[in-house]
Design a protein around this nucleic acid. Sequence first.
DNA 1: CAGAGGTGTTAAAACGTTTCAGGAGGTGCC
DNA 2: GGCACCTCCTGAAACGTTTTAACACCTCTG
Lengths: 344, 344
Amino acid sequence: MGSPVSIRDVATRAKVSVGTVSNVLNRPEVVAPATRERVLGAITELGFVRNDAARQLRSGTPRAIGLVVLDVGNPFFTDVARGVEDTASEAGHAVILCNSDESARREARHVELLAEQRVHGVLITPVDTDLAAVRRLRDRGISVVLLDHPTDEPDLCSVAVDDRQGGELAVTHLLAEGYQRIVMVNGPARIHQARQRHRGAVDAVRKAGRSRAVLEELVVPALNVASGQRAAERLLARSTRPDAVFCANDLLALGVLQVLVRAGVRVPEEMAVVGYDDIDFAAAAAVPLTSVRQPRQQIGRTAAELVIAETMSPAEHEHRHVLFAPELVVRESSRRPVRPRRGR
Amino acid sequence: MGSPVSIRDVATRAKVSVGTVSNVLNRPEVVAPATRERVLGAITELGFVRNDAARQLRSGTPRAIGLVVLDVGNPFFTDVARGVEDTASEAGHAVILCNSDESARREARHVELLAEQRVHGVLITPVDTDLAAVRRLRDRGISVVLLDHPTDEPDLCSVAVDDRQGGELAVTHLLAEGYQRIVMVNGPARIHQARQRHRGAVDAVRKAGRSRAVLEELVVPALNVASGQRAAERLLARSTRPDAVFCANDLLALGVLQVLVRAGVRVPEEMAVVGYDDIDFAAAAAVPLTSVRQPRQQIGRTAAELVIAETMSPAEHEHRHVLFAPELVVRESSRRPVRPRRGR
DNA sequence: CAGAGGTGTTAAAACGTTTCAGGAGGTGCC
DNA sequence: GGCACCTCCTGAAACGTTTTAACACCTCTG
């Protein structure tokens, strides 16, 4: 049957007052062992489960934090989510995971919902750079940590990875391996990460100061496998092909790689490929993929720690902007063979 | 500043009673347009946000449903989650997504949390077959739908895909293409899906009735890329290799495929590979992967519909066991070339 | 034996909503 | 003018907890 069993039922059963039951639940040490046992007995006998709504209403301290990501299908975010969940559940918080799917409307709806739930705090990768939704949350007194979206806003925490440095790492590596004609397959400029990674790539070329190296940007509408495939097809159709491709994320790179492999283009001899994110599949691709790794779980953990710290002591909390350093993982797809070209 | 603005503040501001504000919020049609506007004005001016805890406490009707999956990193589950979220948010429900990570302890903790939240219902892929956690939820009057875990339990709904049929589809296809020595790379027997898919594979061989075809099972500890790689290495080390590999999921298959491609084994000429789940990466692999597709989003949608229907009218609800049919997607990795072997 | 200082328990007041019985005021009908 | 019937609004009770002040009882101290 249903279970409308409340703390009051437990109290009568154990022949104590409701206050005592509440104490057993929340501060067991203040109640005498004998009564404590009696109450616990009643609880299990009746199958009592605390009603969190009432608890929250009275105590004012919620037990959930919200996490709003751009795309649950993206392994990057699922890893971040895992990190968040780890530290959150250690602190006794539930995580409400929301998927904005890069839609401002969905984001707004989710944010509204989280506000109504009176969550402890919200970790969010905002859809737009204007941060309208984020501002509204803050105005309602909910602490917010920006995820993977660096900012200078003084009244917000943020946790991100230095995308510009990541782009620079990738292209510097390609130049060092001797590649000259590099195409960056990039997402649309409205995506913050895409812009930064491209800037880093430009930095690399500039710093190398070699006049022969050229970097071109090829913009695709979405950061997924299909877009990568189409981009590769376009590159193959050219009369002079690039000798290296740097992709704004691994999904693009896998799409590119597949088309190249199937077209018989040797990777990396004829064309190198570098991705970004180092998702699990990167290492398992037909040609293991060089990629820029981000400390994904750690991003999640750090963000969760920040939001919990802020809500614990809002007064003396100092907003921090954590910027992790990316790391280049070199694999076969971009390693110039030691010997000069084989065959001829 | 914080926002301890309650319905009462709105009421005084709009010079009405709290009851009227509540009516504006929940049944706007019963209040006169003029007052309605006045109240709405006050709401936006004060930045009022409903406190869901209080609402739930009083009304007794929660607005969230729980979803407990084995692995958020697995694309199968993220697609299911997407389906769940779609129909749930249409019905005005939030989705609390929990990751049990195949750990009974984590599952128990999440289930406890969901029970305390008094969620509308729970969709769960149970870690164990004994369904202890599920029973406890039901005892507390929370409706449960089993996800991807077929059952005959008469007091539960379930939504799943016919894994046995899927296994049979895959192996029947391999046999039809002329493959003879088939190895199934499978997960441990405690995983329900692994058992069923293997049974289906056995069915296929039996039905084909061809005495020359052999099916062997190679059990690996986990259903991931690394396990697939190790399995393929073991197969390659043998003196007589199989001519086809059927993997219990796509992650395994991708691992196998990678090792084969790198070792120079031609796929499918020398060895065919078939996966299971048809994740996005399957089509984008070096050799596009034949796989068994499951209607993932539809599983999620159907499950959400069932749990919502059940909680709407628990009395006349009839528990259903929905079993979707899998579909074989044939790609290059298992298509026997029309001509006999090339070369020689 | 009075008072001080524990310890363990209780009763009642909150928390912010929804809901419901009922009241005020207006309109139409006989 | 009395009555019935609307429409719109109000006031208060209830939901299940946590929290706090107060109380009862015991033990120790002087």
